[in-house]
Design a protein around this nucleic acid. Structure first.
Length: 351
DNA sequence: AATCCGGGGCG
DNA sequence: CGCCCAGGATT
């Protein structure tokens, strides 16, 4: 069943030179990253695992700080498994995509009980470990011949082969073909380093690229034309109201549920429905809490990639007991809301 | 295959 | 301000 397989864009006799060129560059110019300690292909699986999960949709430059903080708090998988989820989320605070932390914690319980998986299928079966992460861990920490497919790999191959809309399966096929079986871990690291430091999205440094001689996009003088930009869904406008009962350090918080910021704590909040006014949403919120709103503290906007939230924050009093803000994991949105404390609220007229 | 999920950094 | 980032789960 190989009827529709296209011709190999890199002829077979160029595979070896391409591998050699990229690996030589990697040996000289590869990044020195904290989870790359130890022998090539035999990295520490726990350190690689945490790094790969934390760096999902997170740039390395920003992930480094979170990585140190997380490893300091949870230096081994046993420590992580025995920690309460709240503490894990607190360590993850501000990093985003909080399902990653919940999955990592759940998977740590499995690993603490059963030991580390030693091959791709075992890793792939853990929560929060998809094709990319399983390939990365099994190649970097166990020397298995698994090719990673991430945003860097996709962009590098789109340009090497001048493919404007590379399908995921196509990218994986190229990656599988070119993977150096002698040094799979180093090859994967090299490809990602190339994408992150040379073959960058907007201003690729083709003049210093070790594989420009093999690159179809470069040959056309059209490096940035590949891959074509993705069409994205328009940002959704969301209005919401929240109440601050307490102050910046002690306030009434409630757990957020569902996929949106699920697992984090936040100020009691209600979304303003379609055809509804803020005042009506505030009334709903206060009724739910048995609280009384006293004035508008301020308004803020918060962007979350796929939506833009306009939040009105009100001062209120109610029966709930405030809790220590510092001990709870909050999103940036709620941190902004708390930062409004101290402003002069515009009080409602007394009836 | 398409959608959804945060937050930051950079041009 | 728009785009992208060491993706995975869900449908």
């Amino acid at each position: 069943m190989l009827a529709t397989v296209p011709a190999d864009p890199v002829s077979t006799d160029k595979v070896a030179p391409l591998r050699a060129a990229l690996l030589a560059w990697f040996d000289a110019c590869g990044r020195d990253l904290p989870w790359r300690a130890g022998e090539e292909g035999r990295r520490d699986p726990y350190r690689v695992w945490v790094a790969e999960v934390l760096l999902q949709q997170t740039q390395v430059s920003r992930g480094l700080g979170y990585y140190q903080r997380f490893l300091d708090a949870f230096p081994t998988v046993q420590v992580l498994a025995e920690a309460p989820l709240d503490a894990v989320l607190k360590a993850w605070e501000g990093c985003g995509y909080y399902a990653r932390a919940r999955h990592l914690h759940r998977a740590a319980g499995i690993v603490a009980a059963q030991g580390f998986p030693t091959s791709y299928p075992g890793w792939r079966a853990l929560p929060g470990v998809g094709p990319y992460t399983a390939a990365a861990i099994s190649s970097l920490a166990f020397g298995e011949g698994r090719a990673v497919n991430d945003g860097n790999v996709r962009r590098v191959f789109a340009r090497l082969f001048a493919q404007p809309r590379p399908a995921d399966a196509w990218v994986q096929a190229q990656a599988d073909t070119l993977l150096d079986p002698a040094r799979p871990g180093a090859w994967n690291e090299a490809l990602m380093d190339l994408g992150a430091t040379v073959c960058t999205p907007k201003a690729p440094r083709c003049a210093v690229c070790p594989v420009s001689a093999f690159c179809a996009a470069f040959a056309r003088g059209q490096s940035t034309a590949y891959p074509a930009p993705k069409v994205r869904a328009p940002v959704q406008e969301v209005r919401a109201v929240a109440v601050l009962m307490g102050d910046q350090h002690r306030a009434v918080l409630e757990p957020r549920t569902g996929t949106l910021l699920g697992g984090l704590m936040g100020l009691p909040t209600e979304v303003v429905g379609a055809g509804e006014t803020q005042q009506q949403a505030l009334a709903r919120l206060c009724a739910r809490l048995g609280a009384t709103a006293q004035g508008l503290l301020g308004e803020l906007t918060h962007g979350m990639t796929h939506r833009r939230i306009t939040l009105e924050v009100y001062v209120a009093h109610g029966p709930q007991a405030p809790q220590e803000v510092a001990q709870a994991a909050l999103s940036r949105l709620d941190q902004k809301a708390l930062a409004l404390y101290g402003r002069q609220p515009s009080l409602f007229p007394v009836p």
